[in-house]
Nucleic acid binder design. Sequence first.
RNA 1: GGCAGGUUGCCCGAGUGGCCAAAGGGAGCUGACUGUAAAUCAGCCGCGCAAGCUACGGGAGUUCGAAUCUCUCACCUGCCA
Length: 421
Amino acid sequence: MTPFTVGTRLPGAQGRTGVLSTPHGDIRTPAFIAVGTKATVKAVLPESMSDLGAQAVLANAYHLYLQPGPDIVENGGGLGSFMNWPGPTFTDSGGFQVLSLGAGFKKVLAMDVKGLQSDDVIAAGKTRLATVDDDGVTFKSHLDGSKHRFTPEISMQIQHQLGADVIFAFDECTTLMNTREYQERSVDRTQAWAVRCIDEHRRLTASRAGKPYQALFGVIQGAQYEDLRRQAVRDLLPLGFDGFGIGGALEKENLGTIVRWCCEEMPEAMPRHLLGISEPDDVFTAIENGADTFDCVSPSRVARNGAIYSPDGRYNLVTARYRRDFSPLAEGCDCYTCANYTRAYLHHLFKAKEMVSCTLATIHNERFIVKLVDDVRRSIEDGSFAEFRAEFLSRYYAAKRLGPQNEGPGRSSTNDGHLRY
RNA sequence: GGCAGGUUGCCCGAGUGGCCAAAGGGAGCUGACUGUAAAUCAGCCGCGCAAGCUACGGGAGUUCGAAUCUCUCACCUGCCA
């Protein structure tokens, strides 16, 4: 039972439009799924998320398990009802937290240890809070240090209590620095866990008859290795997942290739979710190569730190040059913030550490990415995908190409080329 | 009037002979952020490209060497009359 319908195909590529149906409504794909880790998109009301066109929200099983606890969310009517979000919801399994609390893989470290192969990597200044074994993960709560354990079964139980429309299998997310040998073992482990997730999911689904159907997506790992990625899909396919999540360690330059490998191995009718991606260039790449949905913290996190998306690149609004800039955040933007406020005002709010600065900036950034993906979808439908991408990206990166002395918002540097989930 | 204490870089504030262009905050400036341990984190922050210069209330001293010791002037704060 795969409630996914393919619409327009992108010629010569894996990309397509479609509709993903859930008990709480349809998602027109490709779609950006806003992240609301702790059952809230930080700083923004659900009504605002609806107004800006967000189609679905993704929360996190690990965080909601620790606080407030899945039983409370369940008693609150399930994730959507609890947080007053009427539309479709997703939950991530907590698999990513095994990485972020375990290895604490961060950019600083990635640069310091580049080329180094290590299976026991911890970011500077971080304490390892999680350890993995074949049966599951033991971790300490980042909130109070208490000890907990997740297994595939427990993650399924939690996600069933949370009640999201789309849930993910419990997986192990590795880093680019793990050895090939470790990546192999890890993919095997994720596969074994997938089997257990499916079993538990079916058991729970049967025992909870009458509840809205929850779709379970398997998660594909395998880092940068083509054979591991393709094999991971082939191994997961017969298990009967409703869709797939593509996760794991990869370099930005390999994003499209990796998504393509995975999607080429899947039946066309399978919905594909790319975990943790939303930079504009990555959005085009991911969609072209077959991703239907993707979620990312970036628009909201970056907004809270004063970075603003615009057609001319991402820029830092807190910079002094915007103190007296009375134009909207982005030219031509139709969001609530741009309709009513100026850069100078938001700059002031950020400097004064006023809370609405986060709200207004997040509304803008979320709208920017949602609209970008909507526009991409339309461009696939009317056959102008390639032109739209060329046009958008050439403008988006124009400021950067002209160099730092160039006026107008733009990025002055790129990241280290590593993506972390 | 007497006694005691104080005056440090944009602000607060440590430092009581050399390791002090001076701790630590804040402010300011810049950068980063991709399944959220993030309203976070990192770097810079007297002038100068540099040799070096100017700096710890003002001035004068002691000393090889002073933000640190002495004298003096100015202002501030307590307590006693």
